[in-house]
Simulated assay, not measured.
Amino acid sequence: MGVKGVTGVFRRRTRELPATAERGAVVAAADGVRVVRGRRAVLDGAGIEVRAGEVLALVGPNGAGKSTLLSVLAGDLAPAAGTVRIGGRAAGDWSAPELALRRAVLPQTAELSFPFPVAEVVRMGRAPWAGTEREAQDEAAVAEAMAATEVAEFAARPFSALSGGERARVALARVLAQRAGLLLLDEPTAALDLRHQELVLRVCRERAAAGDAVVVVLHDLGLAAAHADRVGVVHGGGVAADGPPAGVFGEELLSRVYRQPVEVFPHPRTGVPQVVPRRDAEAVQSGANHPA
């Protein structure tokens, strides 16, 4: 065996695989994070913890820094100041292959230059485990992820031939197939219809119930209230509020953050907070008199 082969075997045998985090344990955290883009501090003093067994939704207005904070928590973006820890270690201390074993990231857009079949795109999520003992899980992980996202029926179709919503579900399947203990999803419901929005958030809840930590950027406050254990309201360069939706989604805070008066009331059956824009009676009556 040549030197290259010996080195490959050595690396495979000594590669440290991640341990399963205990439920409630902090698996990622940002503290005092500052990120500057151009001359603007997108984040300035932002901090939040991500815990195993929970769905954490990041919400806030456009441009607040939700996606930036997600990238920081993923270790993909190094802040100008502050600290970021993943798996109990500074994010910058992990190599890219080591990070890929510990966290999976779904970006806002999923583009591929070549017309790979859907099944192969999902299988790409297994790449970090090549050469490890968990490589034996590849087939089961791919099949399970495709079933969960309802993309198995077009497994042989080229990714480039899919609709935007179908691509979004395939991209999520790739992330699920990775089987990392920390999932970071950037607006996974943006291109989806009502049914598939619910499907994606149910999958997030299932992963959290199995012990994973899930962070999801959402614009729909109703989805966040219904499916998240905690919400972090990103505003003014930091996290303006962090806690259970029922405790965080207050009319004063949301009206101020979104610069739009809102009303918050419990759903009559579930008690989950419902957030709607405050509209005066004249506007409502005018809409009723002029149907589409």
Rank of each mutant, 00 (worst) to 15 (best):
R259E: 15
P245G: 09
P277Q: 05
V276L: 15
E263L: 15
G247K: 06
V284E: 06
L254D: 00
R278P: 01
A283R: 05
E252F: 10
P268V: 09
G271C: 07
G250H: 07
L254M: 07
V275Q: 00
E263A: 12
E251V: 12
S286L: 14
Y258R: 02
R279C: 08
A246H: 02
N289W: 10
V248N: 03
V248T: 09
R256Q: 09
A240M: 08
G287M: 11
P277N: 08
F265N: 10
E252Q: 13
H290T: 14
Q260K: 07
R259Y: 07
V275S: 00
P245T: 08
G243Q: 07
V284A: 12
P244D: 05
A288R: 13
Q274V: 15
E282G: 08
V275W: 00
A240G: 09
Q285P: 01
L254W: 00
N289P: 03
V275I: 12
P268M: 10
P266D: 07
G271A: 09
D280R: 02
R259S: 14
Q274L: 15
P244E: 10
G250L: 05
A241P: 04
A288E: 11
P244R: 09
R259K: 12
V264D: 04
R259N: 13
F265T: 13
F249S: 00
F265C: 11
V275L: 08
H290P: 03
S286C: 05
R269Q: 14
A281T: 12
N289V: 10
P245R: 02
G287C: 12
E263Q: 15
R278C: 03
G250Q: 04
A240E: 08
H290M: 11
V248Q: 05
P273E: 02
R278K: 12
P244F: 07
F265R: 13
F265L: 15
H267A: 03
Q260G: 02
V239Y: 00
V262E: 01
P245N: 09
V262S: 01
F249A: 02
F265M: 13
V262Y: 00
P261N: 06
G287N: 09
A281H: 05
V284S: 07
L253T: 05
E251P: 07
G250F: 09
N289L: 15
P277C: 09
P273G: 10
E251H: 10
S255A: 06
L253Q: 05
F249T: 02
R256S: 11
Q274R: 14
E251M: 08
R279A: 11
Q260V: 06
A288S: 12
E263G: 11
V284W: 01
A246P: 01
S255I: 00
P266R: 03
S255R: 04
P268F: 07
H267R: 03
G243W: 09
Q285N: 11
A240N: 07
P273M: 08
V264R: 02
N289E: 14
V284R: 06
E251Y: 11
P266H: 03
A281K: 04
R269W: 07
V272N: 04
D280T: 02
P277S: 10
P273C: 11
